[in-house]
């Protein structure tokens, strides 16, 4: 067992009377792929929002690299190496693919607005390095040939890939992927699995929300199952998929959902 890069302690949030996430102790082992599954409305995205700082928890704490980050704002969490993608595509539609990804490099550059306006050497140096970095990410996600096109004009599959490329451009140590596979065709799905494995090989810890069980089972080290905001199972995929609670709450219903 490697050490945990991410840990939530009794995390929870309440919207009015609804406990969207309740007392969840989630962990992600450094350099591993951890999956988060559960029926629609189970609280998966809400848990991501709590980890990334978009929601303030009503209970519990978040630890990243051993430090309590519960009070940090989302942009501060990105700076220390925690990045996320969005379930509903949240790109900068009117900006080019390249510029979208360059915004991801924002916190890895340092030059200020005055240097920007005066085009000082620090700007040129950092821009050059960032563009190289970003081009690599775009290439990795199969977007190099559309770098100059508007993000909003890409196909759905490519937009999903750009979501990931942009998050990767922040140089994260931990990457939260919210349903990256939804809406992809079989071939794209296969590429996605390969890419997630490649991210892990680069040393990035990945947490993945996913509905498709076959994807989850083949690539993840551990799986957490949420239902009505609560953890009903957390462990290696083999154990989780055999858990009667899980079969009842989630796997058993899969056929109805797809119908």
């Amino acid at each position: 067992m490697s050490k945990n890069i991410l840990e939530t302690q009794g995390i929870g949030i309440q919207f009015g009377g609804l406990k969207a996430v309740n007392n969840v102790n989630f962990t992600a082992g450094e350099g591993e792929i951890t999956a988060l599954i559960g029926p629609n409305g189970a609280g998966k995205t809400t848990l991501f929002n709590l980890i990334a700082g978009f929601y303030a928890p009503t209970a519990g704490k978040v630890f990243f690299k051993g430090e309590d980050i519960t009070a940090l704002k989302p942009y501060q969490r990105t700076r220390i190496g925690l990045a996320r993608t969005f379930q509903n595509i949240n790109l900068f539609a009117d900006m080019s693919v390249m510029d979208n990804a360059l915004v991801g490099q924002h916190c890895r550059m340092t030059y200020d607005p005055i240097s920007a306006m005066l085009s000082l050497p620090s700007k040129h140096k950092q821009e050059k390095a960032s563009r190289k970095e970003v081009m690599e990410m775009l290439d990795f996600m199969g977007l190099a040939d559309v770098a100059e096109e508007k993000a909003g004009s890409l196909s759905y599959g490519k937009q999903k890939n750009l979501e990931i490329a942009r998050a990767m451009a922040t140089k994260p140590e931990l990457l939260l992927l919210d349903e990256p596979a939804s809406g992809l065709n079989t071939q794209e799905l296969d590429q996605l699995s390969q890419r997630v494995l490649a991210m892990r090989d680069r040393g990035i810890t990945v947490v993945l929300i996913e509905h498709k069980m076959d994807v989850v089972m083949t690539i993840s080290h551990k799986v957490m199952v949420l239902n009505f905001g609560e953890t009903i199972a957390f462990g290696p995929p083999e154990t989780v998929s055999a858990d009667p609670h899980v079969i009842e709450a989630y796997l058993g219903k899969e056929d109805d959902e797809d119908a």
Partner: peptide, 14 residues
């Protein structure tokens, strides 16, 4: 980026 989508901008560390 803020004009296009401030939530995504924040997520990118802005």
């Amino acid at each position: 980026a803020i004009r296009a989508n401030d939530i995504a901008a924040e997520a990118m560390g802005v």
